[in-house]
């Protein structure tokens, strides 16, 4: 880790405890009690999956890289910790977050291209780049211009040689990092804590056997393996897992973070198994139409 993250606005202003995050969200809900009651929405984790699907749909035809997509996901998550979703047009917020993230990650897209893709993948009537331009002001202002995101991908790249990850393991760790953006983890843990969890899971899950499909049961087993490694402490039964555990102890990484992170992922994979876009699309469309937020 470089010193960069420790003094970053990400750590200082955008990393919360679970309690803090719950409190922030409760505050917004309380302030918008009427709206919240009038327009029920599915579980937040379902919405995260839906947003991810929508962002990917916009990003794919434009050839936008994963890291810019990840940055956009973090922007959306930050934004909705400060602004009640029912006061916004999510289609516009997502398109704008993607547009802004591409500039920040040095792969800029023309605003017209982003608008075209947004129109293509949402049944939406906003048809003017000035809408995205204006929403950009709102996003930046809500985030206090704190736009630099430290991603676990860099930590993964730094650590992969240290732990001698195979190509498959590295790919699996990478895809686990991709998945964590669908949870609150980017607002809860540091990038290197996420990276080490992803590495740990990749090593335990043995990607050559399971392919790159991660599921809840598999991750739950991995958690078991972590518990064993801690208990046997230096028995050398599971060499690489042990090495990871030792390394975490040496580098003062709280192993509870890894456990917490793993559990969050388990619950994501559980929910994902029964998820459908429809359950999110309709309630969102309802409040957007009813409130004229797409005008």
């Amino acid at each position: 880790m470089t010193s960069t993250y420790w003094e970053s606005t990400q750590r200082k202003f955008w990393t919360f405890t679970k309690q803090q995050l719950a409190l922030e969200r409760k505050k917004i809900e309380e302030a918008e009690r009427n709206l919240v009651n009038l327009y029920p929405l599915p579980d937040k984790r379902h919405l995260s999956i839906y947003f991810y699907h929508q962002l990917s749909k916009m990003a794919r035809p434009l050839g936008i890289r994963q890291q810019a997509l990840a940055t956009a996901q973090v922007y959306v998550r930050r934004f909705y910790t400060k602004v009640e979703i029912r006061r916004t047009n999510p289609a516009l917020v997502l398109a704008t977050a993607l547009y802004l993230a591409c500039k920040m990650e040095e792969c800029p897209q023309h605003i017209r291209m982003v608008l075209a893709e947004a129109r293509h993948c949402w049944d939406t009537s906003f048809n003017d780049i000035s809408k995205i331009g204006e929403c950009e002001f709102t996003l930046i202002s809500e985030m206090n211009s704190q736009l630099i995101i430290h991603h676990p991908y860099r930590s993964l790249a730094e650590l992969q040689t240290h732990f001698q990850l195979t190509q498959e393991e590295n790919a699996l760790a990478w895809s686990i990092i991709n998945d964590h953006y669908l949870t609150d983890l980017p607002l809860l843990l540091s990038p290197h804590e996420i990276a080490i969890t992803a590495i740990f899971l990749a090593v335990v899950l043995k990607p050559t056997q399971g392919g790159l499909q991660v599921n809840a049961a598999g991750v739950a087993n991995a958690l078991q393996a972590l518990g064993n490694a801690r208990a046997t402490n230096g028995q050398g039964t599971q060499n690489r897992v042990q090495k990871l555990v030792d390394w975490m102890a040496e580098s003062n990484i709280d192993i509870e973070c890894v456990v917490e992170c793993t559990q969050e992922l388990i619950s994501l994979y559980e929910i994902w198994e029964n998820y459908t876009d429809k359950a999110c699309k309709e309630p969102i469309a309802k409040f957007v139409k009813a409130r004229g937020l797409d005008k």
């Binding site: 780049i129 000035s130 002001f137």
Partner: peptide, 12 residues
Amino acid sequence: YSGISQSAIREM
């Protein structure tokens, strides 16, 4: 509004 230039975004 026409979108903020990339260099302005960087500087901010």
